[in-house]
Structures are given as C-alpha cells and as structure tokens.
Design a protein around this nucleic acid. Sequence first.
DNA 1: TTTGACTCTTACGCAACGTCATATCTTTTC
DNA 2: GAAAAGATATGACGTTGCGTAAGAGTCAAA
Lengths: 256, 256
Amino acid sequence: MKKYSVKDLSKLAGVSVRTLHHYDDIGLLKPAIRTEAKYRLYGENELLKLQQILFYKELEFTLQEIIDILEDPDFDLIQALKNHKRALKTKQQQISLMLNTIEKTMSNLKNKTMITDNELYEGFSKEERDEIRNEAIEKYGNNTIKTSEKYLKKLSKEQLEQLKKEQQDIFKNLFRMSSNSPKNEEVQLEIARHYSNIRKFWGTDGVSDAQKKEYRGLGKLYAEDPRFTLVDGKPQPEFAKFLYDAMRFFANSQLD
Amino acid sequence: MKKYSVKDLSKLAGVSVRTLHHYDDIGLLKPAIRTEAKYRLYGENELLKLQQILFYKELEFTLQEIIDILEDPDFDLIQALKNHKRALKTKQQQISLMLNTIEKTMSNLKNKTMITDNELYEGFSKEERDEIRNEAIEKYGNNTIKTSEKYLKKLSKEQLEQLKKEQQDIFKNLFRMSSNSPKNEEVQLEIARHYSNIRKFWGTDGVSDAQKKEYRGLGKLYAEDPRFTLVDGKPQPEFAKFLYDAMRFFANSQLD
DNA sequence: TTTGACTCTTACGCAACGTCATATCTTTTC
DNA sequence: GAAAAGATATGACGTTGCGTAAGAGTCAAA
C-alpha cells in the first residue's frame, strides 16, 4: 500500500497543504493513518476521494454539499445536480443582465460625458493623427501624452465645448499678441484671465499644489492637441508653443 | 433639507439598517450628520450616493471597488467597467463549462447506473401509474413509497435487468406454488434461494441489522412495483401479495 | 413616567482557505 | 552523533458583506 504525506498528496492533486488540513478539520477527507507524531498519511482511496471532491468543487458545490454527497450513499445525486444546474442557469442570466447594464453604462459614459479617441483627434485623417501624436510623443514622451489624453477624455463634451467657446476671445487676444512681440506683462495678464476662467472647470478643488501641475498640464495639451489652436481651421504650432510657454511661465511664477 | 434616519433610508433604498452601519464603518457612506446621541442622519446627497452604490453592487463590484470608484473623481471608470466586463465574461464561460459537465454527469448517471421515474413505471399509462402508486401509498404510506422508489433508482440498469432475469425461474416456481396452497416450508425454501440470490446485488455489506429491513423492503417493492410480478405481461397483485408475505415471514424468522 | 419604537456599539458567525507564528518531528550533512 | 535543514503539527487571525443577537441608551406618545 502506498502512503502519501500531506505534501505528496497536495502535489498530486494540486491543492495546498492547508486545504488538506482544512478538509481533515471539517471531516471531508480524513487521512488513512496518523503516525505517532500526528503526521497525516493518505492512501490510494484518499487520493481517489480527493479527485471526487475536486470534481464537485469545480462545479462550485460547497464543501458541505460535497460532504453530503460523498458521505451519504443514499444521497440523491441526480436531484442535487438538477438543483445545481438551475442555480447555475440563473446565475448565467444574472451575468447576462449585468453585461447588458455594463454595456449601457459604458455607452452612456462615452456618449454623454466622455470624449472618445476619435473625437479627440476629429477632423484629422488617420495619417495626420498619427503624425500629431508621434510628434507630441517625441516632444514630451509617451507617458505624458497618454496622461494628457486620459485627462482630456475625462472632460464631458459640454465642458469641452464651453471651454473652447469661453476662451475664444482670450485666445484671439493672445494670438494677436503672439505675432506682435508682446510685452511679457501683457501676456501674463491675459494668461491670468485664462487661468481664472479655466478654474471654473476644476471647481474649487485642487487648490494647492495640484493646481500648478494641472495648469502646466493644460498648457501641454494646447501644445499637443491642435484643436485648441486652430485658426481658420488650420493648426498653429507656433501659437501653441507660444501659449504653452506663457502658461508654463505663469504657472511657475504665479502659482504656489 | 430633508433628513432621513437609518431606518428611513434603509426602507427607501431597500437595504438593511445593518448594511448602512456597515457602509458607515468602512467609510463607503457616512451620514450627513450625527446627533448628540450619535444617531445617524442622512440627506438627499446620501440617498443619491446610496443609489449609486447599489447600482455598482448589482454589477458585483466589491465594496472596496465601489469606494475607489465613488471616492476618487479621477478614477478611470471606463477601464474599470471594461475589466469587470472581461471578468464577467470569463465567469460566464466557466459556468457554461460547468453546465456541460453537469449534463454529462447526469447523462452518465442516468444511462449507466440510474433508473428514471419513467423507467420505473415504464409500460404503464400515466393513469395506471398513478393508480398503482396511489394504491401502494394507501397500503404502505407515502413515505415508504418514496423510500422504495429512491432505493430502486439507485440500482443500475444492468443490475435491475440481471435481477429480473436471474430470478425468473425462482419466481416461476413460487408462482406455481402460490396458486396451489403450498406448504410453508416449501415456500420458505424457495424464498431462501431467492434471498441468497438477492444478496449478490447487495454485496457483502449491510450484513447485520440492515439486512432484515432491506429484504422486507424489497418485498414491499415487489408488492408495489408491478414490473416484478408480471406474468405474460399482466400484473399479478395476488402473487405480489403472496411474495411479500412470504418474504416478510422469511425475514422475520430467518434473519437476525 | 412608563412603555414602545428606535438607535447605538460590540462582537460572534459564516465559507474556504491564506498566511503567519510557534513548536515538534524527521532527515540530511558535517 | 550533533547540529542544521526540511516537513509537519496546531493554533489563530484575516478576508468579504453583512446577519443576528446582546446590552444599553434615546425619543415620542400615552
């Protein structure tokens, strides 16, 4: 007769030693023998029984149910299986419902409050999109771009539209300045206006140290996302850079 | 501002008071106010938040996940939903596998070792079936019948077939006797033969006190289940009774 | 003021082990 | 033959989301 130690058996069956201890504790699978030193020794029968146990466990029977099934030869297995089948089918339906709900939720989120990848770069061909993106990545690194995109996607469509509209005249002013070798003070004044405007979208939160980073982050976005610096429908990389520099300067000098 | 007590809120949302306590404990949903006496008071915001919580809970997010989702506005909900969706789909596949396994198992059990209800009474119309069953119930009580049927179902098809075949000639002899006012000794001798034959199907187990009960139980089955006492395809209730009496006598007098 | 009706906190229970911690073997190594 | 290395044993707490008392304080109606 072969004898297996806990570890042997656990390896054979692919379960943990603790599990065997547990099964012993609850009386599901007792070792064939206990040595003087209380070591557990299992035989072939126990190995076979363990296989059975694992079979039912895969079907998600509880250990107590498995005890009932294996310990009582009078157990009505067919009925138990039928019941289990019903339960599993119910569960499957539940999951289907959940999946539907998730689909709807995601759809809602995307349509009503989120900006999709395509929208982020809308109006550009795929080639242009990739070019823009790659240039940006070259300039700021892959991680920065992804972070920026993620941030942008979190804005709602309405927020984004309003953001763009309310800032049009600010941008107009700045754009005029940019091609006119402006005084730094003037620019910074306008930037300050922009900043106070922007804050509306951030609420009163993020007041302290996050502010600076975020505003600089927004500057990067302007530099990276051509939609913010279109003039007459054309991207203005110079202006984007101008804006970015001005905002960064503002953030560093004015914000704590 | 309306204020809700724990009970109010629990009724409104359809959760238990304990649940609200729990959510408070883990910081998922804190009451808007605590009175002097430590009573929890919730406002409209909390009601709304609770709805959200329940929404995610229906999708089987864990409470910790819900905390993450609701507490952190920067949480990437879309990604979380995607992950959750994947997990649910995986789960669904698992369940499909389990259902298949159960089907196979049931099929195996039924084909190879179990007898179904229909088979138990095969060859009889539904009306006849009910009649037979009801008569048996009248005679021996509902519980006995169910036990008997359960016992019969535990026999394999092969066992049942062999049982019937090997005993045909024993039954023939007995049947002849039954219509011939036989001597008790003769009958008991033949019954003894039957008994030793039957034991093959019970193995060497159930040797002692269970034996007697079981053999008498089998007698009842003969009396109840017309298939065992068909002659030329017709039920023989008289013979069934004769058999049952003989077996009972044998069990009582010969078996310990 | 007594009595219900509520509410509070504290804490065990459940399922199936995972994960230490501490104490004993048993086996290997020097 | 002794010490180090490996296995194994028995607690016992942690996990997840509350259910279910238990014991005690609070509030409004009678």
